[in-house]
Design a protein around this nucleic acid. Structure first.
Lengths: 257, 257
DNA sequence: CAAAATTTGTGCGTATGTATG
DNA sequence: ACATACATACGCACAAATTTT
């Protein structure tokens, strides 16, 4: 621990513990040494260690339990919902290695899908249309964190099926057929219990729910491009929203009594 | 059914069925009559009825199941997350009657709460501070739809405890002590299984998960005002997000292969 | 079941370095 | 140069929660 160089001792300790936890050498659930031991190990007062642990708890890296000890927490990937969501960018920001795995890719008649009405509405398609369905499992450091189904209008984008099969990323495939940019228009977030298949793919513990997000992406020209159903393991992912449009101009009062 | 007056017949039928469902006379799970019967009843062709049912399915009022029939869906309240969230406004927009019920209101030392670190961080409070905790159950037409815990810094707003006890709405209480406006800075959305107490209060079916939202509200002067933990029954509420900030300037590619 | 040991939580006093006026 | 205020870090003591004996 270097002192008097402008960086506080407690933040140096916090940083060191963070590296230890992030590296994976101390897996989730591990009990940290008692504060007294840590203090001795780092050659500082227990208060100083406590300040470091407090910091880690604020960032949800550990859980401090009175009388029991401090424990390494299950890492949660905070996913900030913005207009240009990119899977691997998000994962890398958390210092994890992204990996996408294609489970299936096919062209199919819209009417054969269970959510036909919702898809037709969102993508402004007649009900008898052909769509491209891509199913994908997203991982971070080999831990599954997202199971997604992407639905594209097939006739509106000839050659997209081949492009998706040929390119490693959706963005690249779209680019190759002339769609250089697209943004997220809206997300609908819910939660439910997973099906057995989903639980298996996402390696979920029994009784663990999933976050479900239904996203509509549009092109630069504001034409509906893709409807995307994603589920996340709720214990490993949280969604962050930073509202910006006010939209509620008329005033109302929250009920209390 | 009036024809030739500019309003399509199918939308008249859809509107009539919607009223029937919204009124509660046909509770969730009820099987609608077969399309042929409905066609005869309304004196129209089956195609016209199908068009009406399609519309209702898009709006998630019913579920159409191939070969089985159509069923009244559990009503889902879409909650659009914006900068000025107001509970009763939201509920009324869905033509339901809002009601707020105070479960508890007290001043307590921050350190006694389980989420002390997270609250201290979000509200920029030292750990030994006093906070006001308000717990509230929100209902729509007597169906519980939200269980919230509001945490305010007590010292920063003297008189707030009394104000909250005296006024019927949080907004009114805040107004009375000089806080005329506040907005939502960020929400953190997750999902989990409810505790037995939560399941009881929200009248949840066994095994049903809840959506959890942790919200930070700030004053006009951008001072942290309130941290608010809300849980929603996932079967009855969905959150809608319309992203606006791009924030992702560097380009990345979504993984596919 | 009770006592002891372990571990985190809190309070107070002191010393030191740093920014402010 | 000096006084003041503030944050950091240390030392010690005891309280509270939990586990072990």
């Amino acid at each position: 621990m270097r002192r008097g160089n402008g960086v506080t001792v407690w933040s140096q300790i916090a940083a060191q513990l963070r590296i230890e936890i992030d590296s994976g050498r101390t897996p989730p659930g591990t009990k940290l040494p008692p504060e007294a031991d840590l203090a001795q190990h780092f050659g500082v007062n227990r208060h100083t260690v406590r300040r470091a642990l407090e910091e880690l708890a604020r960032n949800r890296l550990i859980r401090i339990e009175h009388g029991r000890g401090s424990f390494v927490a299950e890492p949660v990937l905070d996913y900030q919902i913005n207009r240009r969501p990119r899977f691997s960018e998000w994962v890398r920001r958390h210092n994890r290695e992204p990996l996408g795995e294609v489970l299936s890719l096919r062209e199919i008649d819209l009417a054969e899908l269970a959510e036909a009405d919702i898809i037709a509405d969102a993508l402004s398609l007649p009900s008898g249309e052909a769509v491209i369905e891509l199913e994908r499992l997203g991982k971070a450091d080999d831990r599954p964190i997202a199971l997604s189904r992407h639905i594209f209008p097939a006739r509106r984008h000839p050659g997209l099926l081949k492009a998706l099969a040929a390119h490693k990323t959706i963005t690249a495939a779209l680019y190759s057929i002339g769609i250089t940019d697209y943004v997220r228009l809206r997300s609908r977030i819910s939660a439910r219990m997973p099906t057995p298949r989903e639980a298996g793919l996402l390696a979920l513990e029994a009784g663990a729910p999933v976050l479900q997000s239904e996203n509509l992406n549009i092109t630069e020209a504001e034409i509906p491009l893709e409807l995307c159903f994603v589920i996340y393991p709720a214990t490993r992912v949280a969604l962050i929203v930073e509202p910006s449009g006010s939209s509620d101009l008329d005033s109302d009062h929250r009920m209390v009594g």
